[in-house]
Write a protein that binds this DNA or RNA. Sequence first.
DNA 1: AGCTAGTTTATAATTATTCTAAAGTGAGGT
DNA 2: ACCTCACTTTAGAATAATTATAAACTAGCT
Lengths: 137, 137
Amino acid sequence: MSIKKNIANKLRTSGLRPTNQRILIAKNLFERDNTFHFTVETLNREINKNGNKKISLATIYNTVEAFKKAGHLKKILTSNTKSYYDTNIRSHHHFYDDETKELTDIDYQKVKLSKIPNPPKGKKIKNLEVVISLQKL
Amino acid sequence: MSIKKNIANKLRTSGLRPTNQRILIAKNLFERDNTFHFTVETLNREINKNGNKKISLATIYNTVEAFKKAGHLKKILTSNTKSYYDTNIRSHHHFYDDETKELTDIDYQKVKLSKIPNPPKGKKIKNLEVVISLQKL
DNA sequence: AGCTAGTTTATAATTATTCTAAAGTGAGGT
DNA sequence: ACCTCACTTTAGAATAATTATAAACTAGCT
């Protein structure tokens, strides 16, 4: 099956109509060897770089949000004012370099929590993330 | 010594000239029984609520940033597009309720990490924070 | 092929933050 | 107490990130 058909099916099973824009964005996000950390801005740049037909920024915002809702993307915690997303949706942790604003994954097995608190009543834990902020030596 | 004098000295020793605005903001932030989680918006509302003379938003931004630099405030990690600050500067962790955008402290001893990664070379760890995102049961 | 609800688009609107440059003020010296 | 001046504050403009609007487009039916 072609990549395009493959992606289209993935979208369909997520309840998302496989439009050309969504397929193109999905191809850019998910057909990668490594996980991808991005903002709407960098994703847009990436798409244009590959010589594709330009996609409206609003569509990129909508699509990224739709992919997040469908569970294909995760929002990353930062102390920044713009939103970062991650194609790695497994529970995992990050280094965050405050100077360069660069995010890198931390290997899952490199962090071990021996104790975590109970959630407040009426709530359950949706996600647990460790962020280690870095600075120059 | 009066509260005002006390705050003025704290500011002076941080290299910040104790202006009326800074003293008023500091009073609102640090003369509390509990730690305070806030955004510039909520802080501004708080100040106005107490019947004080209005402070320019730009000043609040400047002051909060200056207090952060001086080590009196910490920026909190969220998946939000606006900046949250915390008057609790000790290393500690948070619950973050994605629906209500509410932040609460997690008792330091309620989280234990038994393993953390080495920082990348050339970098050292500035801060480590665990954020537990919550959702409705 | 035609219909329709879901999608995309350019653009406007909104929100959060930073910049600017003029007016105000704390603190040291007189 | 008064001067001076570097540091602050201020209103408003500028910028940046995101969301809303409403007209045009299109995937997936029949």
